[in-house]
Design a protein around this nucleic acid. Structure first.
Lengths: 238, 238
DNA sequence: GCCGCTATATATAACGG
DNA sequence: TCCGTTATATATAGCGG
């Protein structure tokens, strides 16, 4: 007797869910889960958290502990507190933090390095293969080695590869910046709903605040969200 | 026999964790988890999410999808000046912010580069023997093309290969970005709360942004790196 | 869209190095 | 302090109502 109680939780790829009804269900469930996690984090560690979520239907869901407005005020307050450039503000404490940060980054980068090295090995192997072909005259045809990947190992010295990698990284950077701009435009056009003036308020068992606001004028309110979320970045600059 | 490899995950009450070190650990882990969940939700449902977290040490952590700082930059640029007066001044500030952003990214990339350099040194030495054997036959007199970007443009006709290479690098980039941001998520601990005015940005596999504030020294260093990295790109490859 | 259910996928508390 | 492991607590995908 075939029993089909349930397939149980199935693994899904982290990519946009195609089926809209599935997406909606997942959105609801995961949004709840996210807020719950945030709530627990707030309680467990006694920290303040604010979350804004713009649903597929352009509705705004928010979570705040103790409340969204407080989080907001706190940002605005710190923002106003710093009016100068703050260029000379880093003291010994700052340096300490910097060191902590630095070491942390290096740790991460070590792992990144592993990945990069692997890829590098692949690339190099390919280069060696091409090299062999070229030397034996297969691809010679009067065209000398013009590209680094065609170069035999002897030409592919550290410097060249390094430069090659540098270019790759440079490209990466440009990609990031470029995409940022594009996404920025998209965002300002479609999402960024209102953050201020939330209408519906509820609280969970921990006193956290959950707000939801039906679609509003996105573009206008985008400003508020952007400022909230971005405030730390402009701190001391404007 | 007596089993004691690990007690495994223990159930904990959702109440403020008394032990400070435990709290710190939990904060880091759960913050990472929270951001990851948010990231997944963004990708799965194609929604916008912003999260602000004030750490126990009053540091600010933020998560944003898709962009945060670029959105701000663009928004402020089109919106107009803030409190610093004229629009030109504002634009200057905006440019500063943007540059800072780029610098920060590059700074991180440079760290990667530095590490990779070491690896390359090893690889290079390993291939030096072959290098010597073939060098004399390359390019005849003068100095053979030391660097791949020195190749005459006219010889850059292997566009297909170029494209293939580009793809390869693209893949490499993805690895770098993916890994770095994934780790960055966890690394965004502490740091330069509302003191410094520059931000640090990374992205995870889903294009979400994680920000934190770096030390000014870092930024200065990054500035130098920008120059260093602003190397000849007119090779037609990137 | 909101439950409830089940079987799994994930997240993570304790520990050890 | 950070990282990796392990055993377990939680979160959730798919399905029904």
């Amino acid at each position: 007797m075939a029993k089909k109680p349930s397939l149980g939780r199935q693994k899904i790829a982290i990519a946009k869910i195609p089926k809209k009804n599935h997406l909606q269900v997942t959105f609801s469930k995961r949004r709840s889960g996210l807020f719950k996690k945030a709530s627990e984090l707030c309680t467990l560690c006694g920290v303040e958290i604010g979350i804004l979520v713009f649903s597929p239907a352009n509705k705004v869901f928010s979570f705040g502990h103790p409340e969204v407005d407080s989080i907001l005020d706190r940002f605005l307050a710190s923002k106003g507190a710093r009016s100068d450039g703050g260029g000379s503000t880093h003291n010994s404490g700052t340096r300490q933090l910097f060191e902590a940060h630095r070491s942390a980054s290096i740790q991460e980068l070590n792992m990144i390095l592993t990945q990069v090295t692997e890829q590098l090995e692949v690339d190099k192997r390919r280069g060696e293969g091409l090299d062999k072909a070229t030397r034996s005259g297969v691809g010679g045809g009067g065209h000398p080695r013009q590209f680094w990947w065609e170069s035999p190992v002897e030409e592919m010295n550290g410097m060249e590869e390094l430069e090659q990698l540098r270019s790759s990284l440079e490209e990466l950077k440009m990609h990031i910046v470029g995409q940022s701009t594009r996404l920025m435009m998209d965002a300002s056009r479609s999402f960024m709903a209102p953050f201020l003036g939330l209408e519906y308020t509820a609280r969970n068992d921990h006193g956290d605040q959950f707000d939801r606001k039906p679609d509003l004028d996105q573009v206008n309110n985008a400003a508020a969200l952007v400022q909230y979320l971005s405030f730390p970045q402009e701190n001391g600059l404007f």
